[in-house]
């Protein structure tokens, strides 16, 4: 696989949200606005990138049988670092993401990439993979958040685009499932067109 492909596969072809359907809890839980989606996406990207780097650096020192617990400890440490830093410098985002920040630990995307990619590949490739997958995840969250915000409260990134109240259901829980359903259908269609000729 070329370096470019390793980086770009996370955006559409193997998008963690739309195609692999991983890490669905934060996808649905925090995307009430574009800003929250982007914030969560970037926090996850950071953890994914750092854990990929560390895992690929130490892969040959870790005995096979304890690799999963070791990865989990590494991931949990980076999550706590994000948690503390965000609390100190972005307290408002910290408040609105709430419990979903510690829950980055159990986002299957991260452990999945550590096990499936970083534990078998070089540091450089793992960096590209982590960045690509993370940004693909962030992209998906931002799109979903932006759509829900536009449909539900008539704004994007907090800036009003039309007056009036919007269809509230899209900001509430049911709207999350419904909008994501249509987005996945759309990405399936796009992928079919681009890759399965």
């Amino acid at each position: 696989m070329s370096k470019l492909k390793i980086f770009t596969k996370g955006f559409l072809k193997e998008n963690p949200v739309f195609v692999l359907l991983l890490g669905m809890c934060p996808v649905l839980g925090v995307t009430t606005s574009a800003e929250n989606g982007l914030g969560m996406g970037l926090a996850t990207t950071f953890v994914l990138l750092m854990s990929n780097i560390v895992v690929s650096l130490i892969k040959s020192f870790i005995p096979d049988k304890v690799r999963i617990p070791s990865y989990i400890v590494i991931i949990a440490s980076f999550v706590t670092i994000v948690e503390l830093t965000m609390q100190a410098f972005l307290p408002e985002l910290f408040d609105s993401l709430g419990i979903f920040i510690p829950l980055i630990v159990v986002n299957c995307v991260i452990l999945g990439r550590a096990e499936a990619f970083a534990s078998k590949n070089s540091v450089l490739d793992s960096i590209l993979d982590g960045l690509g997958m993370g940004l693909g995840f962030a992209l998906a969250l931002t799109i979903l958040g932006a759509l829900r915000e536009i449909l539900g409260s008539g704004a994007i990134f907090g800036i009003n685009v039309y007056s009036g109240d919007g269809a509230l259901v899209f900001v509430l829980a049911p709207g999350a499932f419904i909008v994501l359903g249509y987005l996945i259908a759309l990405s399936n269609k796009l992928n079919k067109k681009l890759y399965n000729k």
């Binding site: 870790i62 005995p63 304890v66 070791s70 590494i74 949990a76 440490s77």
Partner: peptide, 24 residues
């Protein structure tokens, strides 16, 4: 693919201990 390190009791405990200690 890197060759997997063998899992003996001592190196398993040692690895987990080191990883956790560094993390903490």
């Amino acid at each position: 693919m890197a060759s997997k390190k063998e899992s003996t009791f001592i190196n398993m405990v040692l690895t987990l201990f080191i990883v956790t200690a560094v993390a903490a």
